[in-house]
Nucleic acid binder design. Structure first.
Length: 490
RNA sequence: CGGGGCAUGGCUUAGUCUGGUAGAGCGCUCGCUUUGGGAGCGAGAGAUCGCAGGUUCGAAUCCUGCUGCCCCGACCA
């Protein structure tokens, strides 16, 4: 029946990936566009994902000795202008606050000329400068080091083109800022935080990543080195999923982060900064989602188990609901996030709702289950074929294992997909051939090309990149800097 | 910021060329029948046609300006 094969999301991934992406977000009720250009409203179901990410990651960095703090949204213009490369990098996308009062004008409210700020403020695009300024006061001796700070905050970058979660003018993130006595410590820290990111992406979000270093062109403005985790989306494009920067003494010099060393001499600190953002939610959608909508990795899923009472005319509704309540309670006691759908919608609608939201396990309870003290469970990642019956006892004993299996399966799948789309190439011509072939193919889904780093200095490289919208994604650590990964990117 | 497209109830849109005062589907509300992978019938609510000017007896429709959104590039978490 064609009706049964119908996908919940139109269009499908193959038909139109960008549109599919938007529709998944809408169908799962995660976010919507805001009345402000380039900004989004993160709805409760989407925000719950972010909260789960925050919880896991916050615990993780505290284990690394990082302390949370909060710095202002507004940054004195003069701070931003201190680090030359930083200015170049961010000046063109800064929102600026110039007035502090509104007054009635000819066209309604307008900024009051009399309330113009002598020095405008910049809405933070990132906080290296204002945190550096604080550090310059807080750090006086080598005994004050290392200093490891993090803030969960919103930042604003006036982007030309925005996409929900992936690139919005305002986004939520964590930005960590660490200061050290020596260059080695800073470098090691930047690398360590990258490993923390990689571990978080793979083991919490089930998103396989390639760890590596950015080429000079792709580096953070003001950094000596930028390290990155790169993920591949289901359309073969790369997503920079997190970055960690070794800032050397660049910001220490421009913000005056000095300390007296062990030998009594004065020195500049060595700093790092590292961030992941709500972009990761978009990454998860494009990594795990299918043509029926989202598939949530259990570790960050807002709902682990959706319980759907199947009420029919011939069934005892009160008895079924009571049974559902008891099950819900038992699962909650196991520490699971459970949703019992008691809305008065039709059963099939409730089921599709759980499917589109990507709830890892869907449990159906009707008269049959109540009678047999059992339940019917379907795994979102495997679809209706995985429908299975469990006794209540059996299920409560196995449910965590089932969730772990979903988590593992999502990672396995994503890894297999990615690995099948990385091709070794040995020349510019081969890169070109690869992307010509790919773009000619029906429903072309590109991937990464892996080439010797010498390709970067090939005279034709830049033109080729431009022709196919390619960028060097990173120099993977596993190739010890000898190879470069190339691909289209978000 | 360049190139292309679009703007009409909550959503998708017809109507625009050839001006005559807005129609549908989905969703929503109510009722009945339904409910194990997206139900059916009936009744109802809901639109100053993106904004501001202009032409006209009359503008969703024609003209000018503006704004926003989407897609493709350049830039970026």
């Amino acid at each position: 029946m064609s009706k049964q094969q119908k996908t919940a999301i139109t269009p499908t991934r193959v038909d139109n990936f960008p549109e599919w992406y938007q529709q998944v977000i809408k169908a799962a009720d995660m976010a919507e566009n805001a009345p402000v250009r380039g900004c989004m409203i993160i709805k409760p179901y989407g925000y719950a994902v972010w909260e789960n990410m925050q919880r896991v990651f916050d615990d993780r960095i505290k284990a690394e000795g990082v302390q949370n703090a909060y710095f202002p949204l507004l940054i004195p213009l003069e701070f931003i202008s201190r680090e030359a490369e930083h200015v170049d990098g961010f000046a063109k996308e800064c929102a600026v606050v110039t007035h502090h009062r509104l007054e009635k004008g000819e066209k309604g409210l307008q900024p009051a000329e009399s309330a113009k700020l002598e020095e405008p403020y910049v809405i933070r695009p990132t906080s290296e400068t204002i945190i550096g300024d604080a550090m310059s006061r807080w750090i006086q001796s080598y005994r004050d080091l290392p200093l490891k700070l993090n803030q969960w905050a919103n930042v604003m970058r006036w982007e030309m083109r925005t996409r929900m979660f992936l690139r919005t003018s305002e986004f939520l993130w964590q930005e960590g800022h660490n200061a050290f006595e020596t260059a080695e410590e800073a470098r090691e820290d930047a690398l360590k935080m990258l490993r923390v990111y990689a571990d978080f992406a793979e083991n919490t979000l089930a998103m396989p990543v390639i760890v590596g270093e950015k080429t000079e062109d792709e580096r953070f403005p003001g950094a000596d080195a930028t390290y990155t985790i790169e993920a591949m989306m289901q359309d073969g494009k790369a997503l920079q999923a997190g970055t960690s920067h070794d800032l050397g003494q660049n910001f220490a010099r421009s913000m005056g982060i000095r300390f007296q060393g062990r030998d009594g001499s004065e020195a500049y600190a060595h700093t790092t900064s590292w961030g992941i953002s709500t972009r990761l939610i978009g990454g998860m959608i494009m990594t795990h989602g299918d043509d029926d909508g989202m598939i949530m990795p259990p570790k960050v899923a807002p709902i682990h188990v959706a319980i759907i009472p199947v009420l029919r005319e011939d069934s005892d509704a009160a008895q079924i609901l009571d049974y559902c309540e008891r099950l819900s309670l038992r699962l909650k006691e196991l520490g699971l996030r459970v949703q019992l759908d008691t809305s008065d919608r039709r059963t099939p609608d409730k089921m599709w709702d759980a499917v589109k939201k990507g709830v890892p396990l869907r449990v159906e309870i009707g008269g049959r289950e109540v009678e047999a003290e059992s339940l019917t469970c379907v795994r979102r990642d495997l679809g209706r074929e995985s429908k299975a019956n469990y006794s209540l006892e059996d299920f409560t004993g196995k449910v965590q294992m089932l969730l772990d299996e979903v988590q593992a399966e999502l990672l396995r799948r994503a890894k297999a997909f990615r690995d099948s789309r990385i091709r070794d190439v040995s020349s510019l011509a081969e890169v070109k051939a690869l992307y010509i072939e790919e773009s000619a193919a029906q429903g072309a889904q590109n991937g990464f090309a892996c080439a010797d780093v010498s390709i970067l200095s090939d005279p034709g490289f830049e033109a080729l990149c431009k022709e196919f919208s390619l960028t060097p994604r990173c120099l993977p650590f596993e190739d010890k800097g000898r190879k470069v990964l190339i691909g289209k990117a978000y």
